[in-house]
Every structure is written in C-alpha cells, then in structure tokens.
Amino acid sequence: MTSHTATFDRKTWMGLLARAKPERLAQLFPELPAHELLRPPEIGAVMVQGRAGGAGSAFNLGEMTVTRCALRLISGAVGHAHVQGRDKPHATRAAVVDALMQTDQAAALAAQVLAPLQDEERVRRSARAARAAATKVEFFTLVRGEDQ
C-alpha cells in the first residue's frame, strides 16, 4: 500500500490531526478557506482515565490540556476538532481539514496532508521501537556445574 492511494476514515484522520505537531500541520496546510466558527477555539482539559491493574475499575489519572473547535465552511460542511495542547490555530486548522475531508476535496487533501502525517508518524514510531529493541536483553545461560 502506498500512501498516495490510502483512504482514511473520519476517526483515523481526526486522530492524525490531533496528534500532529501544530507547525507541521500549518506547513502542510497553510491557507485556511473561509469558514464560520460554530464554537471558537477553546482551551480546556480532559480527565484521562486509567484502569486498576490495567484491566479493572476505571480511575482518574489526571487531566491533559485540549483545545477544541467547531466550524462550518461556505459549502456547509461542518468540521470538529479536539487536539492535545493549547494551540488554537492547530484546533482551527484541524477542524477545517475535518470539514474539507467530507467534501469532494477529500482525495486531494488526503494526499496533501493526511498521507504525509501518517507516513511521518509511522517513521517516528518505528524509529523509536527500533531504538527500544536495541536495548532488549538477550539472556544466555552460563554452563552449569551439572553439565560438565
């Protein structure tokens, strides 16, 4: 699968946009089309939950900063964004891309914005995993007395 033919569902692209570095997203998608803000970008917090024992009862681990935004394009398409951090332009840009992805511009946008984000995320993750793998312990058993 090459990234140029990749298709994205909404959940996937919203996740990519939320995790993207704001500067990188701005680089890939610099010009914002005209839009009407339904919910101006707002900074807030989301309580992150964990589970006791990794599997049991949910508990509150602590909050994280999140910026959200909702807007409508001239075409009528509505975009939403919840992105980590406190960057309002990031949330606005993510909401615009979310809206455009529901229009006939989806394919172009997927190639221009989403595919590079996905590729870069994949490279970043596998580089980190490889770095972790280099610290993997290879145990070997020394010759024991009874073997001799």
Binding site: A45, Q49, V66, R128
Partner: peptide, 20 residues
Amino acid sequence: TLPRFGSSRPINTGDMALTR
C-alpha cells in the same frame, strides 16, 4: 481555571508503544 471538556476512555496500557 480550565473548563473540563469531559473524560477520556480508560487508556489501554496493553497497546502501549514501549520504550521500556
């Protein structure tokens, strides 16, 4: 001072991308 937007789903530590 931050408005609370809600709660996350419990994080899945089984899916963790490990560094250690």
